[in-house]
Simulated assay, not measured.
Amino acid sequence: MFLSCIPSGSLTVKLLFVQGPSATIRLLLLILISVALMTVDHRTSYINTLRSGLTVVVYPLQYAVNLPADFMGWASQTFVTRDTLLKENEELRTQNRLLKAQLQKLTFIESENVHLRELLQSSKRAGERILIAELLAVDLDPYRKQVVINKGSSHDELYIGQPIVDAHGVMGKLTHVTPFSSTALLITDPNHAVPVQVNRNGLRAVAVGSGEGTVELLHLPNNADIQEGDLLVSSGLGCVYPAGYPVATVTKVTTNPSLPFAEIVAEPVARLQRSREVLLVWPALANLPPMENPCEVHKRRNEQ
């Protein structure tokens, strides 16, 4: 800031430059503020309220940023040639006939399975509630595999830890829910783990994200009955993912006699990089009363 001083009887103008705090002091002050905010965020829940409010403010911007991609998708579908549409329609009709035939068999198997569970007095229930959502944004951080969807807690009753899938398999689970949007952690994130089992023989394991578009099966011995091409499905353990959803396909099995565990890599069956619509799943157990839901009983015991 410049100050001008004009002495009486003189035409001389003196400009004085007033300096603010030095750069070092400002840097230290910003570091202290950052540490204080991180401490408050870690120990209290006040920042979550502020973050939810800011998310509501930013939501229109996220929607606006997503408009060009939606317009390109609309334009590409609008200008598709007639021959291409006819060919796609014929393929869809063929797939529809096959799926209807399979559905008739699956409906019979499901009803028979429900009857057998009733006879065995099993605590599991068939059928899950689902909701379709669209992707709003993808986290560009190379060390985080996250997406933002356009559904929140205001009308859709989403909750933290809710699983999401696409038309092919498991994608991940919700880690942050706001009134109008939610953030989901994908199964390829290094901080994500999902209990799985080998569809061929029922071998149980835990699939952990590698951060590079694949998942790894940890702590399986070298003599484990698993091979390339095996399909991994969710086991239902951990009370997060319903049992039976496809998760990944084993692509690499490496054994080393000098190491106690095998190196097993699997590729997710869900189209994590291409899907624009996802399905939010409410496990059937979530609709049971707390006294009949084994997950609620287990959670309550841990809290005690």
Rank of each mutant, 00 (worst) to 15 (best):
R125M: 09
R129A: 12
D225L: 05
E88W: 00
Q104I: 10
H155D: 13
R129I: 08
L106E: 10
L185E: 06
T183W: 00
Q197M: 10
M171N: 04
E112Y: 05
I130H: 07
T175S: 12
T214D: 08
Q162V: 10
L174K: 01
L135V: 14
L103W: 01
F108C: 06
H176T: 15
Q146G: 03
L136A: 09
N113S: 11
A193E: 08
R125T: 15
R117A: 15
P142C: 09
Q162N: 13
I149W: 01
L185S: 07
L174S: 08
R125N: 08
A205V: 07
T94S: 15
L232K: 00
Y159G: 11
R125W: 02
Q227H: 06
E228T: 15
E110V: 13
K87F: 04
T107Y: 00
L203T: 12
P163H: 07
K105H: 10
L140F: 03
N223K: 07
R200I: 06
G209C: 09
P142M: 08
H192M: 12
V198S: 11
G172E: 05
T183R: 03
R125E: 11
V165N: 05
G152I: 08
P142V: 04
V114C: 10
P179C: 08
V196A: 08
D225K: 00
R200L: 11
A184H: 01
D166T: 02
S210G: 14
S210M: 11
T94M: 09
L85Q: 11
Q162S: 09
N191Y: 03
L174I: 15
Q227C: 10
D139I: 01
P190I: 12
P221F: 04
H176Q: 15
P163F: 01
E88D: 12
L131F: 02
L103I: 06
H168I: 03
G229S: 04
S111N: 12
L158R: 02
L232H: 02
V208H: 02
A205L: 05
L116R: 13
